[in-house]
Simulated scan of single mutants.
Amino acid sequence: MSAHIIYESAPLGSVIRYSDGAAKPPSRFTKKLAGWESRNGFGRLVKKEPPRTRTTYSSPAYFTLHEGDFGQGGIIVVSVRRTWSVESDLQFEIVERPRIGMVRVLQALGDSPELLHLAENSEAAERWLAGNSYGRAYLEEVSADEVGAAVIEGRTAA
């Protein structure tokens, strides 16, 4: 599916796979493999930003995937995120949606919220939030209505 469909239909916390459709090159071709890996992968949807129009420029809507954290001893040194415009030529697929009862820890920044953490339940979300202080964080439970609407509208994970 297109990037625009992901922006419109995937809820925050979904795992999204992206691909350019090319076959993975053999590992001995390190430069080709690095190029392929930059256009093929997966991540958790953490932010969706609407289109912006200003007097001097305009930008299309975009979304951000969190691909992973790197560090040692519980300390995150680098957090890898990739952002795509809804005009991207890549193909996207919703691999997994948040389940009913999961709780999103969100932070209000700008025009749209950002996913900080996806917890299995409200107790786990409260524990995570107690250990990670964010001034504008709030909790949002994944409801049966949200999941049911996705099924009715044909937006279930492939």
Rank of each mutant, 00 (worst) to 15 (best):
L45G: 00
L115F: 01
W128K: 07
Y134K: 12
I16K: 05
G35L: 07
G110A: 04
T53P: 01
F70N: 12
L33G: 02
N132H: 15
E49S: 15
G154I: 06
K24A: 07
I6R: 10
G71N: 04
L116C: 14
M102V: 02
R52L: 14
E49Y: 05
S2E: 07
M1H: 12
H4M: 15
L139V: 07
G41D: 04
P50H: 05
I152E: 15
A119S: 11
I76G: 01
T56H: 15
V80P: 00
Q72K: 15
V142P: 06
S112C: 09
K32Y: 05
A34T: 06
E67V: 12
G135L: 11
F63D: 04
M1T: 07
G154Q: 03
R52P: 02
I5T: 14
A23N: 11
G71D: 06
G74D: 05
V86N: 03
L90R: 07
A22V: 13
P25D: 05
I6Y: 07
E8A: 14
L65R: 03
L129F: 00
P50A: 11
P60H: 07
W128H: 02
A119E: 00
E114G: 06
R54C: 13
E96G: 08
V15G: 00
S19A: 09
Y134P: 01
F42D: 12
R81M: 14
T156R: 14
E126A: 14
S9W: 10
E146M: 12
G135Q: 14
V78R: 12
F63Q: 02
S85W: 00
S2Y: 01
T55I: 14
G68Q: 02
D20W: 08
K24F: 08
A137Y: 02
G43D: 09
A108N: 10
F70G: 06
A10G: 02
P26M: 05
R44W: 05
I94K: 02
L115P: 00
L139Q: 05
T55D: 13
V105M: 00
A149D: 15
T30H: 14
G154D: 10
A22D: 11
K48A: 08
G21I: 00
F63G: 00
L116M: 13
V142N: 05
V142C: 07
P26W: 00
P26R: 09
E37M: 10
D111P: 11
G74L: 05
P51Q: 08
P11L: 06
N121D: 14
R28G: 10
V147Q: 10
S112T: 15
S122G: 11
A61C: 12
L65P: 00
A3D: 07
S88Q: 01
L12G: 02
A149C: 09
Q107S: 14
V147I: 08
